[in-house]
Each structure stands twice: as structure tokens, then as C-alpha cells.
Design a protein around this nucleic acid. Structure first.
Length: 775
DNA sequence: GCCTGACGTGTTTTT
DNA sequence: CACGTCAGGC
């Protein structure tokens, strides 16, 4: 028996060595799923299966990289490097480049990211003279994306009365037309969006038997990670590829299915047996990651879900600490409480910063947390949010690089044609663009001979356009004759982009300049890595998959000692000794989601489950009362999720004892009459059961813009005279504090208040201060 | 044609 | 609060 098999438990070993036929590996959180997948592949390789015959699909690039590394350590890196391992999107993007001719695409096709797609949809909406208020690019893209994930092409979409009536009900009856126009424009620009990569792969395999057979024969073994998060398009690709040999192994955990918003179907994992009746099921239920309290608490959260496979995740680890539940008054206080706790724990228990992580539901929640961490000098690394690759300056340079490779790329052209300013304004651009649309060609093609397409442009502008054409042509030549790095650096400087940023001496400008340097360094590394392997890297190789890269893929200062901040979604697959979950007053639910179907509630439970099971030693849940109160619609209460945690595993650590009831109305801070709530979210506007008495009635629509809700006539603030030194106060922004000094007279008195975040001086007249107790 | 400031609006999660 | 849009000045 091979050595590596000794490192596995019984269930894991079974899942590793049974490589023939269809296998469903149900892997509970922390049960060694990655290990099983890694060893299974290593096992295949050790048994003589050539690496290029194995297709292994992961959920993120990072997961693929790490797995390759670990397999390499077992079987040798050269062997491992020939595996077909990557995300669905990157693997099929690669296959589509090989087979692009079948679909009428060039192999240099561009991959549009979400913002490219939105921009294109926006211009289509404009061209079609549709109301930009009702046709929101993001929403339309969402509908198109959903259609694509369900393999509904524009013609099917337009001929289907159900889609039409749904669209009509949403007051966007022209969605079908936009969809068709969008697809056409993408094709003309030689571009595919994320969903096209899957849709077009399906079309390729459906319409070209020879291609299908080629890949059916190529991949003798198929392995899929995070199978619970696959959508219909992905499911069908797998089904087709595995049709002949059924050597497909899917690994996943139905309790961690959290991507329904992206079209993921939990049914794929629940119904795996339907397609492969002979399948073998392997259940990994032994959790090696977390304490008993955490495992049990997590189990209790999803205990009542209907859609799930029977399994019992257990652990033999210590019981561990109870799960802490901390109520903060405001988000600022929440940040400081978390920061304090991290600092304390680090010093008392000799922990590293990298042992800690803070998770939250939305990227926007990170800002206040960051501030608190900075105040304490706690180094952190934040993942997600505005990704490096989505920054303006990066997209600008990438725009030039994209134009160099594929000048038909309209979105790239529109981005860079007048940046840095070349005197080509919006009037000229709209002329060019509408000519392009009218003639079914790209803007670049119109540019070559505007007069042929009925575009009237004065001679001055024509000269400027000519200049741009020559510039791009020069770049294309550069890219053909140089490696990626040399080409990129010259393009950055010859385009004038580098100079433009260099001249900007503001702090933001400097950081932009540095970001460009960082991107260029990234290209340099990319090139020199490939050089070691003896290949020459041209620009197109680098630029091909850039849209598929995320922050996670930049392994910059990975070895540094930092705590981690990220959304729960991006924390999947990771683990941290000490975990903080912030902002639970949203119940992990953004309040904008008004319709809560049972499916959605179950998914939110699973999200909570994912969050909790990232923790090895301790998990603490934080929520802030102020936020919660403004949006105190019953269904959004934090207690919903906390109620689903078994009391036995949790502990309230706020100074007031945590109660499962809603906080008393009027208990916290006040607002100046007529002012806006600190955080006005949609739940203040939507209907629901209002718990707090001084919460005003929800409104059907906002009366006048920006005016906020009407003042409560019965409301009287505490007179400032009653505020005394030594009292504990609550402030809307800074949270809990103590008044150390009061100076001045009457309504102009000022109070020095010591908050967790530091000392502040507040005007009592305006103070959003309320005495909660005299001490 | 380009730049600037005022205003208004709307906020999940990701490949 | 941060971003996009629009009007007005250069």
C-alpha cells in the first residue's frame, strides 16, 4: 500500500481508492475533503493514468493551485503540471480557444468581465431608446445571466411566452431583444462573458459531435470539487463528458450550497444518483477542524432544512469554548470590540495575527472594521471588494493590452480611446458606435474607414482618430515581436498612461502609479516563471485569462502576519483558529431581500453554517443594536439565526445579558427630529411588523427625495442640562462612551467623551447623546 | 469637446 | 457615502 493512504481514515481511504465509475463524496465541513480529492488524483497518477487524461474542476483558481502543489509534492511536479486542473471557467475558456473556429470566434477572443458586460448593456439600452430608469443594466445582465446558465439562447428566450410575460411583469418586456443584441455585439467584438464560457462550451459539445467525442476520449477521469455549487450549464457539460465512461467523481457538501444567486442548483448534488444509478456514495462525517461546540452549533443551524442529504457530522476534538454572542451598540463599537478581543487574545494566548479572521456578509461592511483595526495597529489583509483587477488604472492598462490583442474589443476601445485625453469626445464616439451597430461591425472597423459607413467627421478629429489607429497598430506589432513584459511596459509608456499617472502627485495618483507598477511586475513574474520552463510568453497568453483572476490569485505578501477580512462566500474552503462574524443584525440577510422563500431561508442557514464551520477554536458573533433597530422588521431580526443555534452551545458576552427578545423600544440613542436614521435601508421603507414603538410607520414610497421620514411630533430629546460628567452615554457613531469633562454654558456646552475608539469632544446641543444610566 | 461641481440615487454574495 | 449624471462654464 502506498504511503499516502496511511494518512487517511477509513471513509477517506475508500473514497480515494475506488476510482472506477461514478462516485459521490459527501464531505462535511472540515472532514478532509481537499485531502481526499488530492490523494484520489495522486492515486490515479500513481496507478499509471497519464495526467493529461484527468480533468479536475475546482471552484477557485487558488484551490486549483494549492491542490496542484500538494499533488506535485506526492507524485512530482512535472507530472502534476500536466493535469487539466482549474475552475470551470478557466478550463473551458482554454478549450474554447482551441476550438474557437467551430463557433466562429477567433482564438484571441476577449473575456468580458461584469463591468464590461454592464457597459455594453447600457449602451444597447441607450441605442434602443429604452427608459434607463426601468432598464437597469445590472438587472438586465442578471436576467441574461440566468438565461445563459439555464442554456436559454436569445432565440429561445424571445420565442418563449413565459419569459416574455415574466419580463413584462417586471416592466422590462424588451429584455429578449437586449439579450439578442448583446450576444450579437459580443460576437462582433470577439468577446465572451463569464456565462458565455459555459454556454458556448455547451453549444460546442452539442453541435459538434467530433469535438464532443474528442474530449470524451481525452478525459478518462473527471473530478469535481464543490459540486453543490454547480449550475445547470456546468452540470450538462459534465454529464456529456462523462457519458461514455461514467468515471466521474463529484465532491461536495449540500449543507454548504450558497451560490443559488449565481444559478447554482443544490439539486445537482441531491440528484446525482439519477444520472448515475450505479454510483457509490462516500460520506466523510468526521470533522477534524472544529471544537465540539462549533460543530454541534453549526449542525443545529441547518437541522431543520428540508433540502439536504442525510449525514451526521461529528468531531472528536475538545468541547472548546462556547460561541460568543456580543451585542454592540453601533458598527463602530462593533469594530472596536472585535479589535480589542483580537488584541487581547493574541497577547494572552500567544497567537499570531494570521490565526484570526473576520467574516461578514457584504464587502461594504469591511470599512468600519478596517478603521478599528488600523487604530489598534492590527495588520490585516482584505480579500474581495474592489478587486485589484477592477481598479480604474488597472482596467485602463488592461484595456490597452486587450486592444493590442483584439482590436475589435469595443469595450476596451471605448475605455481607452480618449484616455489619456486625445480630443476624441462623446459626440464622435456616439457617431462611431451607432455606425458600428448599424453595420454589424466593430467600432475599430468603422474607425478604419468612417466615410464608408456614412460617418461625418471633421478633418481635425479624423487626424486624431488616425493617430489612435496607428498607436494600436504599433502596439500589436510590439506584442508580436516582444515578450509579454517588454510589450506591456512599452504600451504603458507609449500610450501616455504612465505619464498621465506619474504627473498626478496626489496620494491617490501615486497609489495608482504604484498599482500599475505592480501589474507590470506581475507580468514580469509571469514571464520569468515561464522562461524557466523554457517557454516564451507573448502578451496574449497573459491577457487571456485576466478577467478570470481575482484578488485571491495575487499571492502578494502571503507570508506576512496579518488577520484576514473577507465575505463568508469567499471564506469557503478556508479555516481560522479564531473567527469573528460581524454584522449579524442583518441576520446575514441584506434587508433589501424582501421576499423570503423557504429556499432562500435555507440557503441563508447554509451560509451561516459555512461561516461557523470556518472556525477551529473559537467563534464569536457580533451584531449591532442600532442598525438592527432602524430596520426592526421582525423577519430581519438577528434572533432568527441565533434562535437556530442551540442555547447549549452559545454564550452571551455583552454587558447586558443577551436576550432572544427584541431590544426595548427607545432603549438606545435618539435622532434629532427630522434627521435621517443613521442607516436607512430598504427595510425602513418596506412593510413588516414593526416592533419598536418609536419606529415610524413604514412608507410606501419616499415622499420627497432626500428628506427622510417625517419627524415624530411626540419626540423630545433629553435636555443637555441633564448630562453630567461620569455618565455613560451612547453615540450614534462612536458607540458607548464615558463623559470625562463638560465645559461651556447652556446649549453650547461641550462634553469630552471617552469612547473605545478614542476621546471625542461633542457639542451637547447637537449631541446625538443619550444618557442610558448614571454611574 | 472637456472639466467641474451639484445633485440624486441606491447598496448581497462571485467566476 | 460613493458613484453616476447632468448642467453650465471654459
Amino acid at each position: 500500500m502506498h504511503d499516502y493512504l496511511k494518512k487517511l481514515n477509513e471513509a477517506q481511504r475508500e473514497a480515494v481508492v475506488n476510482t472506477k465509475g461514478a462516485s459521490l463524496v459527501i464531505a462535511g465541513a472540515g472532514s478532509g475533503k481537499t485531502r481526499v480529492l488530492t490523494y484520489r488524483i495522486a492515486h490515479l497518477l500513481a496507478n499509471g493514468v497519464p495526467p493529461y487524461k484527468i480533468l479536475a474542476l475546482t471552484f477557485t483558481n487558488k484551490a486549483a493551485r494549492e491542490m496542484k502543489q500538494r499533488i506535485g509534492e506526492i507524485v512530482g511536479f512535472e507530472h502534476a503540471s500536466n493535469l487539466w486542473m482549474g475552475t470551470f471557467h478557466s478550463i473551458f475558456a482554454r478549450i474554447l480557444r482551441y476550438e474557437s473556429a467551430y463557433l466562429g470566434y477567433d482564438s484571441n477572443y476577449t473575456i468580458y468581465d461584469t463591468s464590461d458586460s454592464k457597459n455594453l448593456i447600457k449602451s444597447i439600452i441607450k441605442e434602443k431608446k429604452l427608459d434607463e430608469k426601468t432598464y437597469k443594466p445590472g438587472q438586465i445582465l442578471g436576467r441574461i445571466s440566468r438565461a445563459k446558465n439555464n442554456l436559454i439562447t436569445p432565440s429561445t428566450y424571445q420565442n418563449n411566452s413565459t419569459y416574455y410575460s415574466t419580463d413584462e411583469a417586471h416592466r422590462v418586456p424588451y429584455t429578449g431583444q437586449i439579450y439578442a443584441a448583446y450576444m450579437k455585439r459580443c460576437k462582433i467584438s470577439g468577446a465572451m462573458d463569464f456565462d458565455d464560457l459555459l454556454l458556448n462550451t455547451n453549444i460546442l459539445l452539442r453541435d459538434h459531435k467530433a469535438v464532443l467525442e474528442k474530449y470524451q476520449q481525452k478525459f478518462d477521469y473527471i473530478l469535481v470539487d464543490e459540486y453543490q455549487d454547480t449550475n445547470f450549464a456546468q452540470y450538462l457539460i459534465l454529464k456529456k463528458l462523462a457519458e461514455k465512461h461514467h468515471n466521474i467523481c463529484v465532491v461536495g457538501d449540500d449543507s454548504q450550497s450558497i451560490y443559488a444567486f449565481r444559478g447554482a442548483k443544490i439539486e445537482n448534488i441531491l440528484n446525482f444518483q439519477k444520472d448515475y444509478p450505479e454510483m457509490k456514495v462516500f460520506k466523510l462525517e468526521h470533522n477534524y477542524r472544529s471544537t465540539q461546540n462549533i460543530v454541534n452549533a453549526a449542525n443545529s443551524v441547518i437541522a431543520n432544512n428540508q433540502k439536504q442529504l442525510p449525514k451526521k457530522v461529528f468531531t472528536e476534538n475538545d468541547e472548546g469554548e462556547k460561541i460568543g454572542i456580543v451585542r454592540a451598540i453601533t458598527e463602530v463599537e462593533e469594530g472596536h470590540l472585535i479589535a480589542n478581543s483580537i488584541q487581547e487574545k493574541r497577547l494572552n494566548e500567544q497567537k499570531k495575527f494570521s490565526d484570526f479572521a473576520i467574516l461578514y456578509r457584504t464587502n461594504a461592511q469591511s470599512r468600519i472594521l478596517e478603521e478599528a483595526l488600523r487604530k489598534r495597529n492590527i495588520p490585516y489583509r482584505i480579500y474581495g471588494g474592489l478587486s485589484f483587477y477592477q481598479r480604474k488604472e488597472i482596467k485602463d492598462l488592461v484595456g490597452y493590452l486587450r486592444m493590442t490583442i483584439n482590436p475589435n474589443d469595443d469595450e476596451a476601445l471605448k475605455r481607452i480611446i480618449n484616455y489619456p485625453a486625445r480630443g476624441i469626445g462623446s459626440t464622435t464616439m456616439s457617431k462611431l458606435e451607432s455606425a458600428a451597430t448599424a453595420n454589424g461591425i466593430s467600432i475599430w472597423q468603422v474607425l478604419a474607414a468612417p466615410q464608408n459607413y456614412g460617418v461625418n467627421i471633421n478633418s481635425g478629429t479624423t487626424k486624431k482618430l488616425q493617430g489612435f489607429i496607428i498607436l494600436v497598430q504599433q502596439f500589436t506589432e510590439l506584442a508580436a515581436n516582444n515578450d509579454a513584459y517588454d510589450a506591456a511596459i512599452q504600451i504603458a509608456s507609449n500610450s501616455g498612461l504612465l505619464k498621465d499617472l506619474y504627473n498626478d502627485k496626489s496620494p491617490e495618483g501615486r497609489s495608482r502609479y504604484e498599482n500599475i507598477q505592480e501589474l507590470l511586475n506581475g507580468i514580469k513574474d509571469f514571464v520569468s516563471n515561464a522562461h524557466e520552463e523554457g517557454t516564451d510568453v507573448k502578451l496574449h497568453t497573459y491577457i487571456e485569462n485576466i478577467a478570470l483572476l481575482t484578488d485571491m490569485d495575487k499571492n502578494k505578501d502571503e507570508d506576512q502576519e496579518r488577520i484576514t477580512l473577507m465575505t463568508i462566500h469567499s471564506a469557503k474552503g478556508l479555516e481560522f483558529q479564531h473567527l469573528y462574524i460581524a454584522g449579524l443584525e442583518e441576520g446575514l440577510f441584506p434587508s433589501s431581500m424582501s421576499m423570503e422563500s423557504p429556499e432562500e431561508i435555507e440557503e441563508e442557514r447554509r451560509l451561516f453554517y459555512v461561516a461557523l464551520t470556518r472556525a477551529e477554536q473559537t467563534a464569536s458573533l457580533y451584531w449591532c443594536q442600532s442598525r438592527y433597530k432602524w430596520g426592526s422588521v421582525e423577519s430581519k431580526s438577528p434572533s432568527r439565526f441565533l434562535k437556530e443555534l442551540d442555547q447549549a452551545y452559545i454564550e452571551a458576552t455583552s454587558d447586558d445579558n443577551y436576550s432572544f427578545e427584541n431590544p426595548e423600544p427607545g432603549q438606545t440613542h435618539f435622532r434629532k427630529p427630522g434627521s435621517q436614521p443613521a442607516f436607512q435601508n430598504s427595510s425602513t421603507r418596506k412593510s413588516g411588523t414593526i416592533k419598536s414603538r418609536n419606529m415610524r410607520q413604514p412608507m410606501r414610497s419616499r415622499p420627497t427625495a432626500n428628506q427622510g421620514p417625517a419627524a415624530d411630533p411626540n419626540f423630545t430629546p433629553d435636555p443637555p442640562e441633564n448630562i453630567k460628567e461620569g455618565q455613560t452615554v451612547i453615540h450614534q457613531r462612536f458607540g458607548r462612551g464615558e463623559i470625562t469633562r463638560i465645559e461651556g454654558e447652556g446649549t453650547n456646552r461641550k462634553a469630552s467623551v471617552q469612547f473605545a475608539s478614542g476621546r471625542k469632544t461633542l457639542l451637547l446641543r447637537f449631541a446625538k447623546l443619550k444618557v442610558i444610566k448614571a454611574s
